[in-house]
Design a protein around this nucleic acid. Structure first.
Lengths: 150, 150
DNA sequence: GCTTGTTAGTTACAAAATCAACTATTACTC
DNA sequence: GAGTAATAGTTGATTTTGTAACTAACAAGC
């Protein structure tokens, strides 16, 4: 095991740099949950996100999902194709505006969604339990501000 | 937040799901900062991370960096090659264990590091200013716990 | 109507991340 | 000390993402 030089060259503290901290926390949180949707259903993060949005909000267009999840349209296009291919969702052309299509989960997709939603809720509760109620609420609030969601 | 389960469009709240929130906040924070090291020096996130670790901690091996930054060794290997090619770092074989090599910034690399460190510090201050001192400290503390860094 | 501009979504190609296999060296075991 | 396992780091193949160009449909101005 090699030895890390411990004298600091300056006073900048990487362990407290917010983008770094956010990234580390985010990676860790995503990774653990990822193993569930990947292991159980062979899904990627993009596919899980699309599935969740449809499960939560019902019918949406790809554009709607992109705006909500801040995902690029090519990612969504590919995720939708994959989910359709696995018969988790169906597309319906919008007859009023034939460029757009409405996406909705099939019964099979809804089953998968409900399963993952439960895992997600439990996982979220586990993460939250690292803090007391007040702290957890404040954390969510601060993250929403940082994310520009408030 | 409601605790009542309903069947259709249920009460699971994606906007409050921690992995999602962490991801959104992290992406936003990284993206803005990325434009600096990418625009100014054409660096990738992996390269910036390696540079920062070396700037902060002085000489390290690739393995050390991997453990600190939780980056996979292939990412590091490629980032190191790129930084070396740009003459931002030099490698020195460890004569006691000839498998390992010590990495250190060149003067040119240190100049780049100092520039980016200043930008980073300013950016961090700007993010932190969204909250009061107490909140910001708590946020960092909570993120460290979530990241498993404490 | 026709031209021009915009939007929803897809596709092709390039860049990057991931995973597995590889080399070289050191450590362990008998 | 020979043989096997483990470790530092690299390389190549595959998968995923990002960027730009594309198709098809609508919209607005004239």
């Amino acid at each position: 095991m090699s030895h890390v030089q411990s004298e600091k060259n300056d006073d900048f503290d990487l362990q407290n740099f917010l983008p770094f901290l956010l990234n580390q926390a985010s990676e860790r949180a995503s990774l653990e949950f990822q193993s569930v949707y990947k292991g159980r259903y062979g899904m990627l993060r993009t596919e899980w996100r699309v599935l969740f949005h449809l499960g939560l909000f019902g019918e949406m267009t790809a554009k709607d999902i992109g705006e909500r999840a801040k995902m690029h349209k090519t990612k969504i296009s590919r995720a939708v194709a994959k989910l359709e291919q696995r018969r988790y969702l169906k597309r319906t052309r919008d007859e009023a505006d034939r460029r757009a299509e409405w996406l909705a989960l099939t019964p099979a997709g809804q089953t998968v969604y409900r399963d993952l939603r439960n895992v997600a809720a439990n996982y979220d509760a586990r993460l939250s339990s690292l803090f007391n109620e007040e702290e957890a609420a404040l954390l969510r609030h601060m993250l929403q501000r940082l994310a520009g969601l408030d």
